[in-house]
Nucleic acid binder design. Structure first.
Lengths: 342, 342
DNA sequence: TCTTTGGGGGTTACCGGTCACATGCCACCC
DNA sequence: GGGTGGCATGTGACCGGTAACCCCCAAAGA
């Protein structure tokens, strides 16, 4: 029961190809899906007609009709942040390589949780959430339980069993490592400027910093809570810098470190002469800053790819796909950290 | 002819809602689309059932069935670049506000042009292209003619009539302005480090720089061709800096400027004492660099929103929608530019 | 009282595909 | 020669909606 002729202005459908090629529409479907069971001559003929008519398959229809899953929506807040942007890149790359269409929806801080599900293209669309901050974590929680979702998170879920559908960078030991690096340069202790936590507790990075100070019996200053931007780092430490006993500051990300370094210079502190500063993320600019920034490189792109790998396994458990891994955090020592002045 | 009962594991469809509410499926459709012609009591009843069943509409089916267009795919290369990322943000924001689903597909430098169309979700899906560089421009050209597309481009198409479906930042005069700023500080001339062009010709920014030098009769150095990253800026100017007569450098973007400043310091040049540097874009870090960077602020987010506005008008010409505008480029003078040393 | 009108709501034909199953045909084997 | 596969294709139902069209009935107007 072929439908009417395609009206003008609408592009060719599988029926048009079938009609011109003189085969059934099911045969065309077999050809474009590269199934077997089509003779070589028929295949060639259909392919020719496809090219001739400029036929392009409609993925909407294909998915609706129960074809293989090939859509994923990424929920993320602020893509201006290096971590989120790099994770997104990894996700998109892996998804595209697997033939998926990637949708993206940005979470505003005040977004209503009830309509998160309405952003999806269909009720059970696969989702990846970049949940490094509060809006992300809330979106993750707000998703209906029947939605297949994986997430890149700041920390593993509490409780005993780790959620196998979540990935995260193990930055707690990395923060401890960075802290020990600063202590090994002779600093009496290390101060910390924190990014916002994704939950009410202190971020993992801050905990790693605490771990290192506690383990070596150093004074444990109150962590300074800042935002994500250079400006917030700048504002957070201004008052702190008058205290010359503060000789080392570890920052929750490189942007904060940038703001901290500016505040330090304005306070007449030389880096690394008077003050050592270290960051987190190894954003592309860090190596070129003045001074170049000691930081912890985090493999966000790899994390994003791994997150998609988890999703694929969740969608096709029987395929027993390999789960991609990502690099361990790595301390990159540059010019901004040096011996303690005292 | 209601279909069979919904099998378990599949989420509720419009038929399930209709059955439970005791109305026809068309009435449910009217309710969720906020059409008139439904009595208040029926509407309330349907809404109750929707909430009860956790019904979420399937946008795929809705679009396939000829509902209003509510999808757009953004084609962009490298989202790591500030300009592209900020444009994307503006596009996403505007599209989401209009109820559109945003798809994103990243153009690899070597991507085949023939399968660009296959990335779209359906044959005539609306598209926005971020075409600041060669992959973007090629993708724009490779799209089939029946696809409704708007684009953020580096420069207006050549020829007389401007393409009304393209938007761009008028950075040629802005570059001239930045150049005149440097000249006004006493520099004999200004050197230029260029981002890659989207075409074979020199980018608009470089032309603006030439305009200013020509208009004032200054020597016109050969522009240095670099890439997009700090590293490429660093490499591009290393040999140049031995020449002490070079006292002012304008860069095609802030990242290049960052690399240039590092190369300058390594060459023993003081900024802005020995050398003035200016950038383009006003990326978030620029104000906090050491020294803070003189640059030209470009409203990429506004451009992205405007690009979507054009798309909306293209899709609904009869609605006569207002076309959003974006801010003019603005020179931001900071610490990195100062009086000529000679 | 009869006709018009318009709101409320149902019916049917798609949209562009996929899936499960039926069918025709020819080679092969006993 | 007839059964038996297996390959190449066709057929009909269905995915979850929307649009166009039809029908029914109460209120208003003639």
């Amino acid at each position: 029961m072929p439908p009417n002729d395609t009206p003008p202005g609408r592009s060719a459908s599988i029926w048009d190809v079938a009609r011109v090629a003189g085969v059934s529409q099911q045969t065309v479907s077999r050809v474009i899906n590269d199934k077997t069971r089509v003779s070589e001559s028929t295949r060639a003929k259909v392919m020719r007609v496809i090219a001739e008519l400029g036929y392009r398959p409609n993925r909407l229809a294909r998915t609706l009709a129960g074809g293989p899953v090939s859509w994923v929506t990424v929920l993320t807040s602020d893509t201006a942040l290096f971590g989120a942007a790099a994770t997104l890149r990894g996700m998109e790359e892996a998804a595209r390589a697997a033939g998926f269409s990637v949708g993206i929806s940005v979470l505003e801080p005040g977004a209503s949780e009830t309509d998160i599900a309405l952003r999806l293209n269909r009720p059970q669309e696969p989702v990846m959430v970049i949940a490094y901050d509060d809006p992300g974590v809330r979106a993750l929680r707000a998703l209906p339980p029947d939605v297949p979702v994986t997430a890149a998170v700041e920390r593993p879920g509490n409780g005993s069993g780790h959620d196998p559908w979540q990935v995260w960078v193990d930055d707690r030991p990395a923060a401890a490592h960075a802290t020990r690096h600063l202590l090994s340069l002779g600093h009496r202790t290390v101060h910390y400027v924190s990014i916002p936590s994704s939950t009410s507790a202190l971020p993992q990075r801050a905990r790693g910093w605490q771990d290192a100070l506690r383990a070596t019996g150093r004074p444990l200053p109150e962590p300074l809570r800042a935002g994500w931007t250079p400006r917030s780092g700048y504002l957070a430490v201004r008052s702190l810098l008058a205290d010359r006993s503060v000789t080392a500051i570890l920052c929750g990300n490189d942007d904060l470190a940038l703001g901290v370094m500016r505040a330090a210079r304005e306070a007449g502190r030389d880096i690394p002469g008077d003050l050592s500063v270290a960051g987190f993320d190894d954003s592309p600019a860090s190596a070129y800053l003045h001074p170049s920034l000691t930081t912890v490189r985090l493999d966000f792109e790899g994390l994003g790819r791994a997150c998609f790998g988890r999703l694929l396994r969740r969608l096709q458990p029987e395929a027993a796909l390999a789960l991609p891994t990502w690099n361990e955090p790595e301390l990159i020592v540059r010019e901004s950290s040096g011996p303690s002045p005292v």
